[in-house]
Write a protein that binds this DNA or RNA. Structure first.
Lengths: 218, 218
DNA sequence: GTCTATAGAACGATAGAC
DNA sequence: GTCTATCGTTCTATAGAC
C-alpha cells in the first residue's frame, strides 16, 4: 500500500521501474533461471534487498514483468481489431488484415509503459518458450481470450473452413510467429549474414504474407 | 579409454546409456538449468558421481545427448533427400517432397540409437530454444550444413525465386517447425482440448501443407 | 567402476540497523 | 525505503575408500 503522494511515491516508483526494466533485459537474455536477483539488481544499480521489498519474491517480480509487457500488446490487438471490424462492417475483416492486427503490436514495441528498450520481442520469445514450471499456465492467462477472439473473426472471414481446420491453421500461424520471434539471429546464420535479423519491418511483412498463404493453402 | 572387452564394457555402457536416457527425459522437461545432475542420476538410478566418471562434466553430458539425438535425424534427412533426388533425376524434387523429407525424420522418432522414449520432439524443441549461453553455437554446429543443402535443393525446385526470397521463406518454414515442436500442448489449449497435440501424423501433415503453401504464396 | 562425503560457489530470502 | 550481513539451501565437481 502506498500512502504517501507524489513526493515519496515517485521515488519508490523509480526504483520499482528500474528493477522492472533490468528484469526485462536480464530475462530476455537467459530466461527465468539465469535471471538471478543479483544480476538484476546489479543491472538496475539498486540494492539486492530492494527486490523483495518492492515485489516480495522473484516469482512475483516475474509476474509483474509479464503483466507489464503482455497486457499492453493484447490491449492494442483488441483496439486494432475493433477498428478493423468497424471499418469493414458488416463484411468480415480480410485475413491479411486480421493477421497484421495480431502480429504488428508485437513488432512495434509498445510493450512497456516505461521501458523504451526494444528487447520486447526477446522477452516474449523467452516467455513463450520458458521451461520453468510456473509458466505452464501462461498461455491460458495471457492468450486464451485473445486467441478465441481472433479465431472467431478468422472463422467469419473464412466461412468455408471447419472449426477444426481453423484451429490447426491458427496453431500453425502462431507457431510461425513464435518461431520467428525466438531467434531472429537464425535468419542471419541461414543467409550467411546477408539478411538482417533486426529489420523488424521486413520480417513482419514476410511473416504476415507467409502465414496468410499458409492459412489459405491455395 | 575402455581396455576391457564385452564383459565389463557392456556393463559400463549400460550405465552410460541409462544416464543418457535419463538426461533426455529430464532435459526435455525443463531445459539445461533445470536438468540438475541429482535429478538425472536419480532418474537413471545411478550414483551422482558416475556422471563425472562417464562424461566428465555436465556440459559434456549435454553435448553427448545432443549428438546422440541430432545426428541420426540429420543423417536420415540426408539419406531421404539422396533417394528423392535420384528418384526425380534429372528433374528437381517437388517442394512438398523436400519439406516432407526435412520434417518427417523429426516426427518419426528415429532420434536415439537406444532410447525408445518418444520425448525426442521435446528435446529438440528445448534445445532449439535453450537460453543457456553455450547453446549459441548449436545452430551452426548441427544445422548449418543441412540448411544449406535443403535450401539449394529448394532453389532448384523454385528457380523463379531469388536467393534472398528463398532465405526468408526457409527461415519462416523452420520457424513454423520449431514453433510447432516446442509445445504441441498449445494445440490442445487453442482447440479447447478437442485436438490432440500428440497425434504427430496429423500435425506433420498439416505442418507440411501449411509450410508449402506459405512458401509458394499463391 | 561405484560409492560416500564434502569442498566451494551461487542462489533466494530475510533480519535488523539506519 | 535502503542498506549490510548472513542464513539455509542447492548446485557442480572431486577426493578417496572400496
Amino acid at each position: 500500500m502506498k500512502t504517501s503522494r507524489k513526493g515519496k511515491c515517485s521515488v519508490s516508483d523509480k526504483t520499482r521501474q528500474k528493477i522492472l526494466s533490468a528484469t526485462g533485459k536480464v530475462f530476455a537474455q537467459g530466461g527465468y533461471r539465469a535471471m538471478t536477483l543479483r544480476l538484476v539488481t546489479h543491472e538496475a544499480k539498486v540494492n539486492l534487498a530492494s527486490v523483495n521489498y518492492h515485489f516480495g519474491s522473484k516469482l512475483n517480480l516475474m509476474r509483474a514483468l509479464l503483466r507489464d509487457r503482455f497486457e499492453p500488446i493484447n490491449q492494442q490487438r483488441h483496439r486494432l481489431l475493433d477498428q478493423q471490424i468497424e471499418a469493414h462492417a458488416p463484411d468480415p475483416v480480410p485475413l491479411p488484415v486480421i493477421y497484421d492486427t495480431l502480429f504488428r503490436p508485437l513488432f512495434t514495441g509498445i510493450g512497456s509503459t516505461t521501458n523504451k528498450d526494444n528487447n520486447l520481442i526477446q522477452i516474449i520469445g523467452r516467455a513463450l518458450t520458458e521451461p520453468a514450471e510456473f509458466m505452464r499456465g501462461l498461455h491460458k492467462e495471457f492468450f486464451a481470450d485473445i486467441s478465441k477472439r481472433f479465431m472467431s473473426e478468422i472463422q467469419r472471414s473464412c466461412p468455408e473452413l471447419s472449426p477444426e481446420q481453423i484451429q490447426y491453421r491458427f496453431f500453425l500461424s502462431v507457431s510461425t510467429m513464435i518461431g520467428t520471434v525466438i531467434e531472429q539471429v537464425r535468419l542471419e546464420t541461414i543467409s550467411d549474414g546477408k539478411l538482417d535479423g533486426k529489420n523488424l519491418d521486413i520480417i513482419l511483412n514476410e511473416l504476415t504474407t507467409f502465414v496468410v498463404a499458409g492459412f489459405q493453402q491455395r
